[in-house]
Design a protein around this nucleic acid. Structure first.
Lengths: 215, 215
DNA sequence: TAGATTGTTAATCGATTAACAATC
DNA sequence: TAGATTGTTAATCGATTAACAATC
């Protein structure tokens, strides 16, 4: 495999989507696909597909195309989905619980080890058999357990404090659902899901379409 | 205001973030800010900030900078946040409930009129005083009520069917949480929140960092 | 007025697309 | 082998950054 360290995030963001389409094709028992056929399905140009994949190595074969099974596996391995991840969720409101449920049922390689909250009404509850622990215990939990990913489902005011503790405790990545921008040490991965920002851009496009119709 | 119809989505995606920072500044009772100061806070270059804002008109003043209050309002109005939106949620599992809760408490201009599900155990429940209706009733509900935004919290197999009904029923935008790509008619806005894709890119960056450390 | 800072044009950078030689 | 299709280089396009004249 080539050196992946300077591949643009535009490429990386497309990989999970490639993988989804390849998974669908696999389920339909399709063996192989050309960049052109894949382009028709997925909507990226054939040229872009070939460029994207060649960032990581030559997965295709001239005159044949790409083997779906093996390309699916390759992309999984590029993304690191052949590994397991231990996660903790901080903030056990509706969103935290929904994420716990979602990963529990749909994301086999991503296991929630514990959930944390400050609310005494929630502490002690079990969600999908995961106990909700007192937030006070986060630091000691991180000392005693290897945790790869911290998931922030708190409000925006607590988020930075939580992320500091998580990073000090050795997590390698942070999945942030709080509507704020976090500062984290070099070398720790961050992925934001800014629901509010997403809803607001939706509002923009709704209005743009309305205005265009008027013209 | 200038013609907004061909502004790139890269610019639009930054607007909610500008607005968040402006809101924070407002709370700190700051009156004005230069593109340079804002650059230090938000992390975009001053040049980009000025370019972005000038897509929509000259909101600043030479020698002074930007008035925070008025820029905040301008961006809100560009995004359409000075209007109200009626929404329905289809799929009332954990995620659907979390979204209902989230918008209820944090998004004043976005009101959930009804929720829909096929599960008899959920139909009839009230979540934040919003009744969960039988999915069978979606079409007639859309006939009788104006709905601006449809929120898809179903599994991926039902998502396209649901979105077809929503679009036929006159929604102007779709907020999609199902892990699939939807096809919708021209002129209807779509915003995807692909949690799975997001988690998978996080996995990629975790591993990239690990590999870099080894070198 | 002098200084500061925008609005805007021009330059650069990076990402996407096109083209085609290599090769299965 | 002939046809198909990749891998890869070159061309284009678009987005970001730099520079500076306009102006508050």
């Amino acid at each position: 495999m080539k050196d992946n360290s300077k591949i643009s995030s535009a490429v990386i963001k497309r990989l999970p989507r490639y993988r989804r389409y390849l998974s669908d094709l696999q389920k339909k028992n399709v063996d192989r696909i050309s960049s052109n056929e894949l382009s028709n399905l997925i909507g990226y140009t054939a040229s872009q597909i070939r460029q994207d994949l060649n960032n990581f190595g030559g997965f295709g074969q001239q005159g044949y195309g790409y083997n779906i099974q093996s390309l699916y596996n390759e992309i999984g391995s590029i993304l690191g989905l052949d590994q397991d991840y231990k996660m903790v969720i901080v903030g056990t409101g509706n969103l935290g619980q929904a994420i716990a449920n979602y990963t529990h049922y749909y994301k086999s390689g991503f296991m929630v080890s514990a959930m944390f909250d400050v609310n005494p009404k929630l502490i002690g509850l079990r969600i999908n058999d995961i106990e909700v622990l007192d937030y006070e215990r986060l630091e000691s939990f991180l000392k005693d357990n290897t945790v790869d990913i911290g998931i922030i489902c708190t409000n925006k005011d607590s988020a930075q404090e939580v992320v500091d503790k998580l990073c000090a405790g050795g997590v390698k990545g942070v999945w942030n659902f709080a509507p704020t921008d976090l500062i984290l040490p070099e070398g720790i991965a961050l992925e934001n899901v800014h629901l509010s920002d997403s809803l607001h851009s939706l509002a923009y496009y709704i209005n743009r379409n309305k205005n265009n119709e008027k013209e």
